[in-house]
């Protein structure tokens, strides 16, 4: 029971982190129709920039400044890169973001090297907050959850209550029509892109030290974030939230389960030991199969409903 609670907590923290990335990406994809391959690269950039700032100054400065830096970079990319490529169609945009992801990855290796950097949890938060069944729970994880929840509330309030939010929600269905009503849609695009990048950067700041900051972190998380966005339905914030939490929990649970598939199936009444032809499959332990779980879920949900959980676009 305690073990389960621990896994659930970790799953929640991870799920909310996924949401920080996927909420920005789903807005960008939903509004602009751009499948932004570089989104997770902005997450990685956030972690590295935060590492440098926290070495020079401290973590708290990094927490504020790094997302702003990443957001500003996002705004520049949208304004001078994507917008120029836009008139050549979606394929050009897709290739542009793909190239951008490569460039960010290489530049990071040039500046910070190929190995993980020593980006650490700040000392003021590096203590066990409480213990569950003898296992100490780090305070920093709770801090991560707090930041994520705070961002969720800010994002939700912005979309639901402000004028920009109304324009963004309208533009999710018909960007052209919104422009016909006198709104400067290209500028709204820039703001959404920059905001999405800043959110990804913030996720990098708080996750880079909890997990690991290395040049592979964008690739590792990027694919999962894509799965979340597609699963939640392109352009749907609530869909992204649900999908993030599901994938976060399911993946954390499967990592925590150190048991063979056959044993797990046996627990729920399916005895498969007799089927020797597939013995290699039954012998896989669930935690080793964890990386495939998000994509398995994705395929299942898309097979049931191609629009995802709550999607408005089917493209």
């Amino acid at each position: 029971m305690d073990q389960l609670l621990l896994i659930l907590l970790n799953g929640l923290v991870y799920g909310l982190l996924l949401f920080m990335l996927s909420s920005g990406l789903t807005l960008i994809v939903g509004m602009m129709g751009v499948l932004n391959f570089a989104h997770a690269s902005f997450y990685m950039l956030g972690a590295y920039v935060a590492f440098s700032i926290s070495t020079l100054m401290n973590f708290w400065v990094a927490l504020i400044v790094a997302p702003l830096v990443v957001g500003a970079l996002g705004a520049l990319v949208e304004q001078y890169g994507l917008r120029a490529v836009h008139k050549h169609g979606h394929l050009a945009e897709l290739l542009f973001t793909f190239g951008l992801a490569m460039i960010i990855g290489e530049v990071i290796q040039l500046i910070w090297g190929r190995w993980p950097v020593a980006y650490r949890v700040p000392e003021s938060l590096d203590f066990p907050l409480f213990s569950i069944g003898g296992t100490a729970y780090p305070a920093y994880r709770m801090f991560m959850m707090g930041v994520s929840l705070f961002m969720f509330v800010v994002l939700y309030a912005t979309l639901a209550r402000t004028r920009l939010g109304l324009v963004v929600r309208a533009a999710l269905t018909h960007p052209d029509m919104v422009a016909m009503l006198g709104h400067n849609v290209p500028r709204v695009f820039t703001m959404v892109f920059a905001g999405g990048c800043a959110l990804a950067g913030l996720a990098g700041v708080i996750a880079g030290n909890a997990y690991q900051t290395d040049p592979g972190m964008a690739l590792a998380l990027g694919a999962i974030v894509f799965a979340v966005v597609v699963m939640g339905g392109l352009g749907s914030i609530s869909g992204a939230l649900i999908a993030s939490l599901i994938i976060g929990l399911v993946q954390t649970v499967s990592i925590g389960l150190d048991m063979k598939l056959s044993t797990a199936l046996g627990r729920i009444g399916l005895h498969v030991d007799g089927i020797t032809a597939l013995s290699d499959v039954w012998d896989i332990s669930i935690n080793r199969a964890a990386p495939v779980v998000p994509f398995l879920l994705l395929v299942i949900i898309l097979a049931i409903n191609p629009r995802g959980l709550a999607g408005s676009r089917s493209s």
Binding site: R161, T162, R163, L164, L166, V167, G182, H183, N184
Partner: peptide, 15 residues
């Protein structure tokens, strides 16, 4: 929104 001069202040509350 645009006509009522509310297009600029994007951060302002709608209601």
């Amino acid at each position: 929104m645009r006509n009522k001069g509310a297009g600029h202040a994007w951060w302002r509350l709608l209601d």
